[in-house]
Amino acid sequence: MSAGAQSLGRAGDGGVIVDRLTRRYERLRNVMALAVYLFILPPTVIVVPISFGGSGEMTFPPRVWTLELYEKLFSARAWVDPIVQSVKVAAMTTVIATLMGVPAAYGVVRFEFPGKRLVMLLMMSPILVPVIVISLGLYLYLSRLHLIGTGFGLVLAHVAYVTPFMMMTVMAGVKKLDPALEFATSIMGATRTTVFVRVVLPQLRPSIFAGALFAFLVSFDEVVIAWFLTGPTTTTLPVKMYSSIQWDISPVIAAVAALLTALSAVFCCAAALLQPAAPQSTN
């Protein structure tokens, strides 16, 4: 009798009845997630202890614990300049992509216009086309405009590459907005600009912020396009890392990698915290 009742189901912790099959699936899910983490995380995490090792070699675990590599990193112009350049490029890219992506995302979600699907496809194409193809195309195009080797040229390229990410984040945000709020505001006399600034933008703030963080990271981290378009004076950090691996395998790279990992982690946490926790309206 009691065995029969147990096989039918059991009250879970939350007072919800959880049947055996559900619990089995949950266990399977946890095991698979753990396997994936074990596969993905170690290469990322391993650079952190290495970066605190001595400057002579790259070993794990490090034999001595020092900040020597970080000292080296921040004292060499060969490393500081690319870091500054990367921050500059990523910041400008983020600003331009936000200015373009937010209104575009709103327009694409809210309004119907002829050729909308084509416009969408074009805007999203940088995600669909292989990066190496984009890079080659941009190289040929920007060399015509004499923008190869300039920071501005790389910003333009990164804007094109990053905008789809920005748009996807903001579009998801716009889809969650209640159009009735916009109509309510326009019937009280507001122009479309006023509606956008006073009603749409404030509600989109979390999505825009998340999109901007993401755009910054993608641009900061991007190596292929930058490899094609940068010159000796405009080298970005990923390009510098890649070339240093090829030419002089310096352990400083471990410090750089650790810093980048920390930066990404901070950004991801910020983005996760910024996502609206629950629907705001009560109905």
Partner: peptide, 27 residues
């Protein structure tokens, strides 16, 4: 709509969630 000089009250209230009561009424 914005030039019709109308006022409207909605079933789901349509208040702006990011503004307080004063700002909603002042808009």
């Amino acid at each position: 709509p914005r030039e019709r000089g109308l006022g409207m009250v909605f079933q789901n209230y349509a208040l702006l969630p990011h503004m307080n009561v004063f700002d909603n009424v002042a808009l």
